[in-house]
């Protein structure tokens, strides 16, 4: 049963990389069930991340957000800050796709705080870029320019010309 779980995970990843997102979701859902049977929280977290990603490419944004929220909960349980940051970033982007900019800002700010805590300048730059865009979408140009300037400074610092 444990090997079956791993095989479903690998199948899900392969379908995903082949662009067959429907089959990827089915495989990762099986992987998730087996992870739960074993109480394997890391595997459960991985399955939720992979499911969220596949749902994004199926255009199932609300479902993706639910899987990413489960990922976030499990990342906190596992005390994995990097995964917690990644889940917040995914949620911020997914809420942008859902055009819920207030929620997008909420998660991008959470991502920004963790990126700062982890001294992850690339992550911080991406959070500022995303926040600038979300505030622009809301018409809050003061906050938008604030984050655009921070994004600009960080990009210069890390030598990201694009």
């Amino acid at each position: 049963r444990a090997a079956q779980g791993r095989a479903y995970g690998n199948l899900g990843n392969t379908y995903y990389l082949l662009g067959n997102f429907g089959k990827a979701v089915k495989s990762h859902q099986e992987r998730l069930e087996i992870a739960k049977e074993f109480g394997d929280k890391s595997a459960e977290r991985r399955a939720c991340s992979n499911l969220g990603n596949a749902c994004v490419f199926l255009g199932e944004f609300a479902m993706a957000a639910e899987y990413y929220k489960r990922t976030l909960h499990l990342a906190r349980l596992l005390k994995d800050k990097a995964i917690e940051a990644q889940a917040c970033y995914s949620l911020g982007n997914t809420y942008t796709l859902l055009q819920d900019y207030e929620k997008a800002i909420e998660y991008h700010l959470k991502h920004l705080l963790i990126a700062q805590e982890l001294a992850d300048r690339i992550g911080e730059g991406r959070a500022c870029w995303s926040l600038g865009n979300a505030y622009t979408a809301l018409g809050n140009h003061e906050q938008a320019v604030h984050f655009a300037e921070r994004h600009f400074d960080i990009s210069k610092e890390i030598g990201d010309r694009s």
Binding site: R6, N13, F57, N93
Partner: peptide, 26 residues
């Protein structure tokens, strides 16, 4: 409005490009 929409999604598009190759291994 169209231009605003494009500006608003560029960071999301970059995220999706990275996401497309992100499969967490067993």
């Amino acid at each position: 409005v169209q231009r605003m929409h494009l500006i608003q999604v560029d960071s999301v598009q970059r995220w999706m490009e990275d996401l497309r190759l992100m499969a967490e291994c067993e």
